[in-house]
């Protein structure tokens, strides 16, 4: 009844619905003011920024995903996402040698592997409408894990230097000497994703599924899409972190199998 009053059709909450959902921002602001949290301005600014960013993206996306438009617009969009994600990673893990180049390779590899499976097996139709959002899921969900694995690998190289050089001194190759630390860093990056995957449907209902159900899709169909998205995220995180960590471990050692000494870059 309320939905009808607000003019919500399937998949479209309308401007009135959008405005009404803003009441929830007002609730958060009210709580901040009531408890003197000093977050009212931040809440308003973040909400406004999200609104503008997403409206802008939605407006541009409608041209990119238009079935009549050539796919190179989608390709351009994906490249932009990879470049932006790589730049963000390089800012957050600035001590990693050649971090920008490594990030570009890692996100590109994940996009090729994951999208290759999704479209190669015709799980989704190959068109802008599917290509851009799926690539966004690949890259966006890999970002935090990629930064985490990068930082973990550098911390291991610094704090476990005596163990790594102890193995090198026994005649192990650089990759064998660093393997236990590489394994630990990858586990640290992947375990949260595995836990999230295990908890899905029990502890929380994931965003893609909720969005589809709200848009009027049958829950059983929404679940199928959601499962493919969960697998996509797992595959993306695993591929990106694996490529990134292999690249970093090569950067940390000289061709003579010596652990390089790093000079940490100052935070900007």
């Amino acid at each position: 009844m309320t939905a009808v009053l607000l003019g919500i059709e399937q998949g479209d909450i309308g401007l009135a619905g959008l405005a009404a959902s803003g009441i929830l921002v007002a609730v958060a602001v009210a709580i901040s003011l009531w408890r003197q949290l000093g977050l009212a301005r931040s809440l308003l600014w973040a909400s406004f920024r999200a609104l503008v960013q997403l409206l802008a993206v939605g407006w541009v996306l409608q041209f990119v995903v238009d079935p009549d438009d050539p796919l190179y617009w989608s390709a351009l969009w994906i490249i932009s996402m990879i470049v932006f994600a790589s730049w963000t990673t390089s800012r957050r893990a600035r001590d990693v040698p050649h971090v920008l180049a490594l990030s570009l390779v890692s996100y590109f590899a994940a996009a090729v592997v994951v999208l290759g499976v999704l479209f190669g097996f015709q799980i989704y139709d190959f068109e802008g409408r599917t290509l851009v959002p799926l690539a966004g899921m690949v890259i966006g969900n890999s970002l935090a894990a990629t930064v985490l694995v990068s930082r973990q690998l550098l911390i291991a190289a610094d704090e476990q230097r005596d163990l790594i050089e102890g193995r090198l001194a026994l005649g192990l190759s650089a990759s064998d000497a660093y393997k236990p630390h590489l394994r630990q860093a990858l586990r640290t990056a992947l375990v949260p994703q595995i836990e999230t995957t295990k908890a899905v449907g029990i502890v929380f209902l994931p965003g893609a599924m909720v969005g589809l159900i709200l848009a009027g899709v049958a829950p059983t169909d929404a679940v199928k899409v959601q499962i493919s998205v969960m697998y996509l995220v797992l595959g993306s995180v695993a591929t990106t972190t694996a490529v990134m960590s292999l690249g970093i471990s090569r950067e940390l050692f000289t061709p003579a199998q010596q652990l390089r000494r790093r000079t940490p870059k100052p935070d900007s």
């Binding site: 090198l168 001194a169 026994l170 005649g171 192990l172 190759s173 003579a256 199998q257 010596q258």
Partner: peptide, 10 residues
């Protein structure tokens, strides 16, 4: 380097 380190241990 790996052969050297096995013959010159530390």
């Amino acid at each position: 380097p790996t052969e050297l380190r096995r013959r010159v241990a530390m």
